[in-house]
Amino acid sequence: MAPKGRVVVFGRGPAAGGILRAALDAGYRAVALKDLRAIQREVPDAAIAVEASAADHLRKREALEAIGNALQPHALLLADALPATAAECAAWTGQPRLCVGYGVVGSLADQRVVELVRSPATYDEAMEKARAFFADLGRETRDVGDRPGLICGRTIAALANEAAWAVTHGVASADDVDRAMQLGTNYPRGPLAWAREVGVDRIVAILENLQRHEGEAYEPAPLLLKMAGKRKETVTR
């Protein structure tokens, strides 16, 4: 078997960590990148660059621009398509043909199926490489349309948001809401505990992406903003 290509994963959250571990387990030479200097140094040798930034929109854009600049012409760029659409991500990279959006909410260890999404410019070859990479990591993939939050992100984020609004409205405490949802619906985790695990800032970023494209229905609850350490003024329009 030919040696597997080099994989670089940019980001700090559970999503980045989970993909890195899965790539190492699958026999890839994989390294974590924490800053722009590491991107400039490592991406030119990478066959696959995975962008899994923390929540901040501006830093995500900077990272995608830097990865796009350093990317080899035959490499694959996988962009986290939950806090921004695949079309936006692809445009930021300057290499839209090589860019495929993917959806992993929290740790990949907890997710059996990965959504893939193309930008208008993405090559078929890039899509095939993306499918092969996640198949190598033991995951099923599904092609989905480029809607904000994809399926996995919008569901987990909207559940957490409704749970947070319920707490804000004094319906029950956060712990009671989580307990009720696990016992009453068989959800694998309580929505607020799930948000904490994924990173509340990431949940807020997914909601803000939905809010930008779909409107007020996705306004993050004040409790989520508080949990994420954000002030409300930063999101009200």
């Binding site: 409704e162 319906v171 029950a172 009671d176 307990r179």
Partner: peptide, 23 residues
Amino acid sequence: TPVVVRDTPGFVVNRVARPYYLE
């Protein structure tokens, strides 16, 4: 297991579960 909730539409479960279907 009792969970005490305030008298609001859908209480906890029927309300917080809505996005699972709606999304």
